[in-house]
Amino acid sequence: MADTELVRSSARAFTDAPALLGEPLAVRDNAGRLSSWFVPMVADDRLVGFVELLPDLTHRRTSWFRHHPDSSEGCPPAAWWLDAGTVLEHARPEMRAGESAADPYLSFDGVPDRLAWAVPVGGPHGPRTVYVAGDTAWSGVATTGLG
């Protein structure tokens, strides 16, 4: 597996704001396999965008939360996507009484385009996954089609 410094330096080629690149996070599928690398771009504690690279470091996409180049307005707080503690806080309303959460990991719900944190939870209802994307949390099978 590529080391994170190598991932970040590879991401530099795919953004016009390389100075904003932060620490890469591994995106894993529900079997724990590496699906891609998420390299965040952060400005003023806001997640303004990210570069996504495949495991072999091929460019997948460069995406921006900011709608306009010079404004961070509307961009989510970086902690929503980069801080596991904040992710857990957002997952909590979806958890039922008696359930406890294991460590969250960056993943996706169903298909790689639907990036989300996965929070494995266990308890009286058996193991399941709560997904968190920004401040939105949900659980269960999301969709059988396009969502």
Binding site: G49, P76, L115, A116, A133, T136
Partner: peptide
Amino acid sequence: WPPNAGVI
């Protein structure tokens, strides 16, 4: 995606 935000 993600909900309530989206990305370009």
